[in-house]
């Protein structure tokens, strides 16, 4: 008998008392009552609590803010599908561009990514209550490796993409895409349960919330 058949057989035998599958009581919150400005305020509060750096700007202010954050970077990577407007004016005129493009069709190697200082991506949806940003690998977010290897992640969240609570957010995305849920920069509590920000993931997380 194959291991598969045998294990399934053992489990069926273990359940010979035919336990009933109960109805799932879903009395927990499904929606949150907050409006856009309250959602932004809550998300900012949570992200700051995780030691992420947050700025709230008008949509038109995104390129300037990105440029400011990238001022010290020797190089940065963006997914090819990044919202074109976000990079307006950035590095224009300079002959030796700091910008590197990445896509599944033309991926950078891990070693190349390791030599790049920063990454700029969009995001799929955010959860205000938990301070969580979800990336789903859409063209404006790119492959998972680009938002992981560079040490500084600049992530743009559109106000319309902020959900109040987790159930609302998960309803908005396709669970079969490669997903990364990010709540602050990487951290560890492994030493005496004291939280330390910045381990293997990007040590610096900058979130730009675009109204």
């Amino acid at each position: 008998m194959s291991a598969r058949e045998e294990i399934l057989g053992r489990i069926r035998t273990a359940l010979k008392d035919n336990p009933e599958a109960p109805q799932i009581p879903r009395q927990y919150r499904q929606t949150s009552p907050l409006d856009e400005s309250a959602l932004i305020e809550l998300l900012v509060d949570r992200l700051v609590d995780y030691k992420a750096q947050v700025s709230v700007v008008d949509a038109a202010g995104v390129p300037a803010r990105i440029a400011e954050l990238l001022a010290g970077a020797h190089s940065y990577v963006v997914p090819t599908g990044i919202d074109a407007g976000w990079l307006t004016g950035l590095d224009q005129g300079s002959g030796d561009s700091r910008r590197r493009l990445d896509s599944t069709a033309a991926p950078l190697s891990v070693a190349e990514l390791d030599g790049i200082d920063a990454v700029v991506t969009g995001s799929a949806v955010a959860v205000a209550e938990t301070g969580t940003i979800i990336l789903d690998g859409s063209p404006n977010q790119g492959r998972r490796a680009i938002s992981l290897v560079p040490d500084h992640h600049i992530c743009v969240v559109k106000a319309a993409d902020i959900a109040g609570i987790l159930p609302e957010a998960l309803r908005r995305i396709d669970g079969t895409r490669p997903l990364t849920m990010i709540s602050g920069p990487s951290a560890t509590s492994d030493i005496e349960l004291e939280r330390v920000e910045g381990v293997h993931g990007p040590r610096k997380l900058d979130v730009i919330i675009a109204r």
Binding site: T104, E129, L179, M181
Partner: peptide, 25 residues
């Protein structure tokens, strides 16, 4: 899970994957 384990609103990273995604991972 996150609130019960590390006592955080959410853990810093959660990864979800469904089989193989071409060109990613």
């Amino acid at each position: 899970l996150p609130r019960s384990s590390t006592g955080e609103r959410m853990n810093p990273y959660t990864s979800l994957w469904t089989g193989v995604t071409e060109g990613d991972g």
